[in-house]
Nucleic acid binder design. Structure first.
Lengths: 150, 150
DNA sequence: ATACACTCCGTACAATAGTACGGAGTCAAG
DNA sequence: CTTGACTCCGTACTATTGTACGGAGTGTAT
């Protein structure tokens, strides 16, 4: 196995060298020490996996701050297990909520696509319409008043 | 129904007035005309729904640019239906991919939580480990030092 | 041993997504 | 008709998430 320099890691992870450094500066990946013999830093291959995870989580709407929290979850006997469980559970709930929302949009898009060739059979004209009518395409769903927010 | 001013819309949507204006400037919501009688702009209630959709889509990792695309999808007989279908399908594929990724993280978190009290039964020590081992516990590829981080 | 690519580090610049501010206009209650 | 809250609009500032640049050091292939 060739020595993993920062550019190899970056290539492996599909990001630029500067991005790796940026993640190092922000504590998302650990910067390996410079070898005592001098020269360039050598990276463990796992770093690339870690970065790929970061990018994936970003695509799913997590901020770097949140991703850092995700990555800091460890079932390490040395740390408090109950705490890890609790934090993991919070993230899990969030994920489950997001999946549900995602499925809402999925259904809406499917409705939109289905409404396309029939032209007018459904009243679905935009993705908003497709979402706002969860199931019942019955009349007068505009009467609901939503005071739900804050 | 009282006249929806911008601050009512903002409150209804759970955002600040400035955010509404920002979305207007960027074409995500349409700015209603000033009444010919003069005075303040009056907003249709749907604007609040639209903004809530924007916020939701953002949470799911879509940029405002992408959300604008989503919102511009319309099964309008006047526009090319095949085009709408195509663009909707692209978004749909993306959503489906994201849901799959999300489920990957969900499973990883569940493994992490499961590994917590048993302590050592599973080798899952971080969320990365929980993700990188899809299900086959192919021995000792991952067995090396995982002491490196934090 | 020299060329050349790559590392290292600091700082600067950039895009996205807001948030804040200030001054002038408007509305509605007292 | 005054007062206070809100609108309108422009501009400026902020946070997050990177990208780019420049100069000095290092590794390596020829």
């Amino acid at each position: 196995m060739k020595t993993m320099t920062i550019s190899k890691i970056a290539k492996e992870a599909g990001v630029g060298v500067e991005t790796v450094r940026f993640y190092e500066r922000n504590g998302l990946v650990q910067q390996p020490p410079k070898p005592s013999s001098g020269g360039f830093r050598v990276y463990p291959v796992e770093t690339a996996e870690r970065i790929r995870f970061i990018r994936q989580a970003q695509e799913l709407g997590f901020s770097l701050r949140e991703i850092k929290e995700l990555l800091s979850l460890r079932t390490d006997p040395a740390t408090d297990c109950a705490d890890v469980r609790e934090r993991a559970q919070v993230k899990l709930d969030e994920i489950i909520r997001k999946i549900a929302q995602m499925k809402g949009i999925q259904t809406a898009l499917e409705k939109l696509i289905a409404a396309c060739p029939g032209r007018g059979a459904l009243q679905v004209c935009s993705i908003i319409d497709a979402i706002e009518a969860p199931e019942k395409t019955k009349t007068n769903l505009k009467k609901r008043k939503r005071k739900n927010y804050e």
